[in-house]
Computed example of a mutant assay.
Amino acid sequence: MAQIVLATHNPHKVEEFQAIVAATRPDLEVVGYNGPEPVEDGTTFAENALIKARAAAAHTGLPALADDSGICVDVLGGAPGVFSAYWAGHAKDAAANLNLLLDQLLDIRDPHRTAQFVSTIALVVPRLSRSSETVEHVVEGVWPGRLATAASGQGGFGYDPIFVPDGQDGAERSVGEWSADEKNAASHRARAFQALAPLLADLPVR
């Protein structure tokens, strides 16, 4: 089976991307990246996704995917945004990030708790021959919703337990209460992947 590297050390993301990729390219195995982490000094999701994908492709020689994603809260001017993983400090403590965000929104009423999960996926295909060139693509997916006042559910990761997506029928649930299949079908990454799927369909692999 051919491989494509996902520029992350997070096993949850590898599993999530494998499930999504398999729908279009069941012959592709998504593998995690075990090389050095580049400095993510971009100011946008797209810049950081490209930084990571370029590093993974250069280190492994494989086509590389990188996702830079986060939660963008309207009343905070789009923050945490690109700082979502480090919102409570550089330890990347997901529980601390979530609790800090809830604390910052403590006095914000429900109508003003709107937010979006944003995923930007970069695909970098390294040169496969002397006559070819490195190819780069960037796609984006946006998942609108709002933030609950307390975490609920044991599923997902990161900010999932406080994110309530728009468009739910009946009782609204946080993503922490969704099944993995439900999330993979509707998430910001799934939406970004809809744009990426045609590119992967034609992806040349060794």
Rank of each mutant, 00 (worst) to 15 (best):
P36R: 02
P36F: 03
P36M: 02
E37I: 06
E37P: 13
P38R: 00
P38N: 13
V39K: 04
G42M: 02
G42R: 05
G42E: 06
T43A: 14
T43R: 06
T43P: 14
T44W: 05
F45R: 02
F45D: 01
F45L: 01
A46L: 09
A46D: 13
A46Q: 14
A46R: 09
A46K: 15
E47S: 11
E47G: 10
N48K: 09
N48R: 07
A49V: 11
A49H: 14
L50D: 05
A53R: 13
A53V: 11
R54D: 02
A55G: 10
A55Q: 08
A55I: 01
A55N: 10
A56T: 13
T60N: 12
G61K: 00
G61D: 01
L62F: 13
P63F: 05
P63C: 07
A64H: 08
A64Y: 06
A64C: 09
L65V: 07
L65D: 03
A66D: 13
A66H: 09
D67Q: 03
D67K: 15
D68H: 05
S69W: 00
S69Q: 00
S69L: 04
G70A: 11
G70Y: 14
G70S: 11
G70P: 10
C72A: 06
C72Q: 09
V73L: 03
V75H: 02
V75Q: 00
V75C: 08
L76K: 13
L76V: 08
L76M: 07
G77D: 08
G77W: 12
A79M: 14
G81P: 15
V82P: 04
F83V: 04
A85R: 08
A85P: 05
Y86G: 00
Y86E: 02
W87C: 04
W87K: 03
A88W: 10
A88Q: 13
A88P: 10
G89S: 05
G89H: 05
G89P: 08
A91M: 02
K92N: 09
K92I: 03
D93T: 01
D93E: 00
D93M: 01
A94W: 12
A94V: 10
A94G: 03
A95Y: 13
A95H: 00
A95N: 03
A96W: 06
A96S: 02
A96Y: 06
N97L: 12
L98V: 04
L98T: 10
L98M: 03
N99T: 07
L101I: 11
L101M: 06
L102M: 15
D103W: 15
Q104S: 10
L106N: 11
L106I: 12
L106W: 14
L106M: 14
D107Y: 10
I108E: 10
R109K: 14
R109P: 13
R109H: 12
R109G: 09
D110M: 11
D110L: 14
H112A: 05
R113S: 05
R113M: 07
Q116L: 02
Q116S: 10
V118S: 02
